[in-house]
Design a protein around this nucleic acid. Structure first.
Lengths: 137, 137
DNA sequence: GTTAATTACTACTTTAAGGTAGTATTAAAT
DNA sequence: ATTTAATACTACCTTAAAGTAGTAATTAAC
């Protein structure tokens, strides 16, 4: 029960960029060193974030990446969506199709509360809320 | 953010066995048909549940499986532990080592509440609580 | 114009989860 | 004793995620 490696990396990358927003552009080499994420894997992820309109890239010498929107307008859930890692509302915790009021699985009732809180966290936590928080990056 | 296929299958298998406890022994063929889980994969999972002391197996003709304890004494969390799918208390949601009061990640504060509810669900939901619930198996 | 530093693209390799096949072992039924 | 129906074991195959390598495209610096 955890986020994919890719999603974890993406959140950390964007949170770091939000924290360093003053220096406008940051390049893949610096990010990779700062966050200890393999360079090639990081650029692969970043290209997807560019295509998803969360990040702007400037190619060529002196290029780099920067957030496309205000940090307060990018939610953790938006990032997870890019990697199909967000929770569908009717996603069954036991993997039996979809769960709703009509037809639910054995664990459904117990699952409702934690699921709602998870969704709330993803929906309401912005990059601004998390940038620079904690003691590790 | 979801349970592994193996854990989902294991929970469904045990919940079904708890529900059919009256007929004491159930065999892999029947279980596989009832739950639509590939036979060979089911037996592989079941063997691990036997080794983990959650299930008793009777080999030979007329053999099968049955729960080793009362359904009320087997928690969902016990099942997840077998497949390393339960949540460690200090597991970092962003995958940066461990999180605790001393050192936490950027999402740690927002993660606490949903995590606690997830842990509570795993810790407090027994097979008895979920057996026969819902409209699908 | 050439060079250097950057992102983008394509293709590959590695690892782990998910799943399958075949055979050995066990024990009740006959 | 033999047959049959069951679990256990070993080894393999498939798929998707994670990660790597090399090259093309782009653009500022010189």
């Amino acid at each position: 029960m955890q986020l994919s490696n890719t999603s974890q990396y993406a959140i950390r990358m964007l949170a770091y960029m939000a924290d360093k927003k003053d220096s406008s552009l940051i390049n893949a080499t610096k990010l990779s060193e700062a966050l200890q994420i393999p360079y090639k894997f990081l650029t692969k992820i970043m290209t997807e974030l560019v295509k998803a309109d969360l990040v702007v890239s400037i190619r060529g010498r002196e290029g780099g990446y920067t957030l496309k929107k205000n940090a307060s307008d990018i939610m953790v859930g938006d990032i997870l969506k890019v990697f199909n890692d967000s929770m569908q509302d009717e996603q069954c915790v036991l993997g039996i199709g979809f769960c709703n009021g009509m037809c639910k699985c054995a664990l459904h009732d117990q699952w409702m509360k934690p699921k709602r809180l998870l969704q709330k966290m993803f929906r309401e936590s912005s990059l601004e809320d998390i940038a620079g928080r904690g003691c590790k990056i």
